[in-house]
Amino acid sequence: MATKPMTKTQLVAALADEMGADKKAASAALDAVTAVVTKEVANGGAVTLPGIGKVYCRERPERMVRNPATGEQIKKEADKQVKVTVAKALKDSVNG
């Protein structure tokens, strides 16, 4: 069941069909949603996309990691990681 992921062009076409609008309007809507989510998460906030999930930024502390090639221990600085928690409705629709 390995299918290719939907491309942006395919997503825009599907959005335009679902919205009953043209592809230009659907592309603008998708770009606007992307910009809002990116700006909010970059500022440390979280965005809940109803029926899809929650996108948020998590801070990871400084830690020791190992280089698999040499086995050498390296200190990795603290950083941030974007996380997505999938909504229960989406999980249920996939599994049910």
Rank of each mutant, 00 (worst) to 15 (best):
S27W: 01
S27A: 15
A28N: 13
A29Y: 02
A29S: 06
D31F: 08
D31M: 07
V33H: 07
V33T: 08
V33M: 12
T34Q: 13
V36N: 04
V36K: 09
V37I: 05
V37C: 01
T38P: 12
K39G: 06
V41D: 11
V41P: 10
N43H: 10
N43C: 02
G44V: 06
G44T: 08
G45S: 14
G45K: 13
A46E: 15
T48A: 06
P50I: 09
P50G: 01
I52A: 07
K54I: 03
V55K: 08
Y56S: 07
R58C: 12
E59K: 13
P61F: 06
P61H: 12
E62Q: 07
V65F: 07
V65G: 15
V65L: 14
V65Y: 05
V65H: 11
R66N: 00
R66Q: 14
R66D: 00
N67C: 05
A69L: 13
G71Y: 14
G71N: 12
K76W: 07
K76S: 09
K76N: 07
E77T: 03
D79W: 12
Q81M: 02
V82Q: 01
V82R: 02
K83V: 02
V84E: 13
V84I: 13
V84Q: 09
T85Q: 03
K88T: 08
A89W: 08
A89E: 15
A89S: 15
L90K: 09
L90S: 02
K91H: 10
D92Y: 01
D92T: 07
S93V: 06
V94Q: 13
